[in-house]
């Protein structure tokens, strides 16, 4: 899949040919820095890219055997919320401040009311969903500003799960929350996922969150997946993409006492003007001549796939 954003002066290559497979009832973690194209990927799956600016230029998105890119807008509307739903990053801004949380939940249910349930049945479902995410049902007449950050994110999760979707895309669901509340919300999400048998795409920049919650991981850099595999490959595998190593080096390790962290130097390249060859080469400590000119091909060890000349050379 490729996605570009067109602005008046430039074309931004946000996603450059990525392949992802997610099986039923699994959790896929997408990891990367700001600007890696994680959110763009998620929005593309739901076809929610900004109109006339964002465009999917190549590729397919296949969901339950059907291609979503060629689907009609009216069909797409049925998929969104009902089959695939999304939990947005910032609970402070993704709720409507002038509607009560109960009304917002009811709205989602009413729009996807395929079984023609009665009003009282829908209201009962609203209460059920709130209880499910740990909010007392008598609080449904309150407005978002009366809830704390963690509680708001629970409301957002309740709305996303209201229609029992098959796939939930969670875009940095806990980044805006305190660590203690993050632990509560993540524990609740994985519990609900198992209970309701959903698949999940978890977008995050925190490898700790991935380790505790995912089955498969894809590491994204400048619109490409540089490494992917099952969770054991990423956290216990021998070979890694230098970018993955850099991400691990940036995390403060609580078990060891080192004085310094080992971050990756430099910044993500400008997506308007991506470097030739491997997009990571200007920041890579293991950069070779070939990296500057030739794009690395995916190199796989079973379920573990890495796009890097260095890894490829040292394993041939």
């Amino acid at each position: 899949m490729k996605v570009i954003y067109k602005t008046d002066s430039d074309t931004i290559c946000a996603v450059n040919g990525i392949d992802l497979i997610l099986d039923k009832e699994q959790t896929l973690g997408i990891v990367g820095e700001t600007g890696a194209g994680k959110t763009t990927t998620a929005l593309s799956i739901l076809r929610l890219l900004p109109q006339d600016i964002g465009e999917i230029t190549e590729g397919q998105i296949i969901f339950e055997g059907k291609d979503l890119i060629s689907a009609k807008e009216s069909d797409m509307r049925k998929v969104r919320g009902e089959k695939i739903s999304m939990i947005f990053q910032d609970p402070m801004t993704s709720l409507n401040p002038v509607l009560t949380v109960g009304q917002q939940l009811y709205e989602a249910l009413e729009l996807h009311n395929t079984q023609n349930k009665s009003k009282s049945q829908l209201e009962a479902r609203v209460d059920e969903m709130l209880e499910l995410v740990g909010i007392p049902k008598n609080r449904k007449r309150e407005y978002p500003h009366q809830f704390s950050g963690g509680m708001k994110q629970r409301v957002v999760i309740a709305i996303a799960l209201a229609c029992s979707p098959v796939l939930v895309i969670a875009d940095e669901p806990t980044t805006a929350l305190d660590v203690t509340i993050q632990a509560q919300v993540l524990a609740m999400m994985s519990e609900l996922k198992n209970k309701l048998g959903m698949s999940m795409i978890l977008i995050t920049h925190d490898l700790g969150v991935v380790a505790q919650n995912c089955d498969k991981v894809a590491i994204m850099y400048a619109g490409e997946i540089v490494e992917n595999g099952i969770i054991e490959d990423i956290f216990e595998g021998v070979n890694h993409h230098p970018y993955t190593e850099g991400l691990f080096g940036s995390i403060p390790d609580l078990t060891r006492s080192t004085k310094r962290l080992n971050p990756i130097d430099g910044l993500m390249p400008d997506p308007i003007n991506l470097p030739a060859g491997c997009t990571f080469h200007p920041r890579c400590p293991k950069c070779m001549d070939i990296c500057r000119t030739k794009k690395p091909e995916p190199f796989s060890f079973g379920s573990h796939v890495i796009k890097c000349h260095f890894v490829q050379n040292s394993n041939q």
């Binding site: 963690g150 509680m151 203690t180 632990a183 380790a211 505790q212 216990e236």
Partner: peptide, 22 residues
């Protein structure tokens, strides 16, 4: 300390004590 997600699989299935409430 318990609430920090650790980037290693060893801790994955360990039952963590998560404090309730806010």
């Amino acid at each position: 300390l318990d609430a920090i997600p650790i980037a290693s699989l060893k801790e994955r299935d360990k039952l963590r004590k998560i404090i309730k409430g806010e």
